[in-house]
Write a protein that binds this DNA or RNA. Structure first.
Lengths: 144, 144
DNA sequence: CTTAATGCAAAGGCTTTGCAGAGAC
DNA sequence: GTCTCTGCAAAGCCTTTGCATTAAG
């Protein structure tokens, strides 16, 4: 329970273990990058940031680790950009603005948003989550 | 305005022209595939379906044409599956169930759904659309 | 003839995979 | 020593692009 901006490797390791993830050095580094920025990062972003810091982590490990984190529920995949997956360390329910001109994502706090009138899910299905993506673009000042 | 299931090439051509799209043979074929199925089709799906029918259309043309259609507003891109873009001939506001185990999309009529409490969009931005994607998975009967 | 669209194949970007080597206990 | 993780490089998809050919008026 550390709610300041300083996150220690031990905090990270503990968190990984809560999600049944063996906290290896690389995984801790990757998690640290994610949780210290608290933004939407692509695998490439993570790869760059991790290698900027201390350890060397290969691309394969970055991809595998992000997949593992997402599968275990430590982070969330955001599918909004057709070209790449973003990983979001914020697993609390929330939504996104997606700027179609730049591909940039911005958070929308979920407590402000209410989605009503959704039909029952198909038989035998469980809801995993609800993504609300508000697609925005620069106003028509500069449209072509 | 033809609301029966039979869509003639002339209907299609007229519709393309409403969207300032020059109705070539290939484009009409592609549009026909989309509007006669009224489902979410990937570029690959369209490619297969178009070539099953009459004319031969290359993959490049399928991709370029789908992009053109989407850009002009004739169809809508649905970004829900990290692996491929789906194209939706239904441009009326509506939402989707996304089965994460199969990648299949199902429509949710928009008139049933109400999204409230969205914050104002960032300065200088216009809302292009709101996507609500309800991610579902088979209930825990058969989980692994 | 002139302009626009098509098709082929190559290239490009993101992601996954196979397998050998390194690390942890 | 055994089991797991990591890293490299190759391969796999989906999609885009360059350019010559073809179609349209």
């Amino acid at each position: 329970m550390n709610d300041s901006k300083t996150i220690t490797p031990e905090d990270i390791a503990a968190r990984l273990q809560e999600y049944s993830i063996n906290p290896t050095a690389q995984r801790v580094e990757i998690a640290r990058v994610l949780f210290s920025r608290r933004t939407h990062l692509s695998a490439e972003d993570v790869f760059v940031l991790v290698n900027e810091q201390s350890s060397r982590v290969s691309k394969a490990t970055v991809y595998n680790t992000l997949g593992l984190f997402a599968e275990r529920g430590l982070i969330r995949e955001v599918i909004a950009d057709p070209a790449r997956v973003f990983y979001d360390p914020n697993t609390a329910p929330h939504h996104h603005f997606y700027d179609t001109s730049t591909g940039r994502l911005t958070d929308i706090a979920a407590d402000k948003v209410h989605v009503s009138g959704l039909p029952a899910v198909p038989e035998g299905m469980d809801v995993e989550g609800i993504d609300v993506i508000v697609r925005v673009r620069p106003a028509s000042v500069d449209k072509d």
